[in-house]
């Protein structure tokens, strides 16, 4: 198995747990999980008296969910846009043209090709594709 495809089931089995533990992990890494409702404001991390890095855990759990193909639509869309254009939003041509009217310099060139290659080097394209199958 691809090392990136570590599943919750494998994790649970490796720790000798099953049943409820597996089910709990599945819930935590599901699309309905509260892990996706964190706004990454870092407030909990900053105020924690024990320096527990909750925000980092939240990001790690989401990364883990994504490795199993659980990628909420908003991330799939932005991820696809970055792979295609280098930016998180597809900026309409009309918006780019309006810049001149507003006295703004042209938008810097966005070279999508090297961006896509860098993302492919960490299998980000596969992550997005796996998310699409869901």
């Amino acid at each position: 198995m691809d090392e990136r495809e570590a599943s919750t089931v494998v994790m649970a089995k490796n720790t000798g747990r099953s049943g409820l533990a597996v089910e709990k992990l599945r819930q935590i890494l599901s699309e309905d999980s509260s892990i996706w409702r964190c706004s990454i404001c870092f407030t909990c991390l900053d105020v924690c008296p024990r320096d527990a890095e909750f925000t980092e855990f939240m990001i790690a759990l989401r990364n883990l969910a994504a490795l199993q193909g659980i990628v909420p639509t908003v991330y799939r869309e932005q991820g696809s846009a970055i792979l295609e254009t280098g930016l998180a939003f597809k900026i309409p041509e009309s918006r780019v043209k309006m810049r001149e009217r507003y006295g703004l310099p042209p938008l810097p060139r966005v070279d999508a090709e090297p961006v896509r290659r860098l993302l492919e080097s960490v299998d980000f394209d596969k992550l997005i594709q796996r998310g699409e199958k869901k």
Binding site: W36, I40, I59, A60, R62, N63, A65, A66, V71, Y75, Q78, G79, I82, G86, L87, A88, P108, V110, D111, A112, V115, L119, V122, F124, L127, G131
Partner: peptide
């Protein structure tokens, strides 16, 4: 330039 990476850190720290 390209996206800073913030929007997709949630799904991929490496990206």
């Amino acid at each position: 330039y390209n996206c800073c990476g913030f929007p997709i850190e949630a799904i991929s720290y490496e990206a």
